[in-house]
């Protein structure tokens, strides 16, 4: 299945395109396309709607989760960075 994703214009957050044409933060609310032609035509209208989201493109999903070649990238976009930031205990941090 295919889903349209983009980044929201005002804050850059990852969004997906719902059937209504609205953009949603939740992948499960996104419209899924089995048919590539239908997906491309929806992408065209998403591109025309440049006032709300930037750089729409298609991603592959499988059972509601990113899949395919870009699975790592799209999983990270969906769930956030896979790496911790600096949230280590002081003891770990100082390596003693």
């Amino acid at each position: 299945m295919m889903v349209i994703t983009a980044n929201r214009l005002n804050d850059g957050r990852v969004v997906y395109r719902a059937e209504s044409g609205a953009w949603t933060r939740a992948l499960e609310e996104a419209q899924r396309f089995a048919d590539e032609v239908a997906a491309c035509s929806a992408l065209k209208s998403a591109e025309a709607d440049a006032g709300a989201a930037v750089g729409p493109y298609l991603i592959e999903t499988d059972e509601g989760a990113p899949s395919g070649k870009k699975i790592v990238r799209e999983t990270i976009r969906l769930s956030g960075p896979s790496a911790g930031t600096t949230k280590l205990s002081v003891q770990d941090a100082n390596h003693v």
Partner: peptide
């Protein structure tokens, strides 16, 4: 820090 994110600071 060992196991930390290089260059990050809170």
């Amino acid at each position: 820090p060992i196991g930390g994110s290089p260059g990050d600071a809170t």
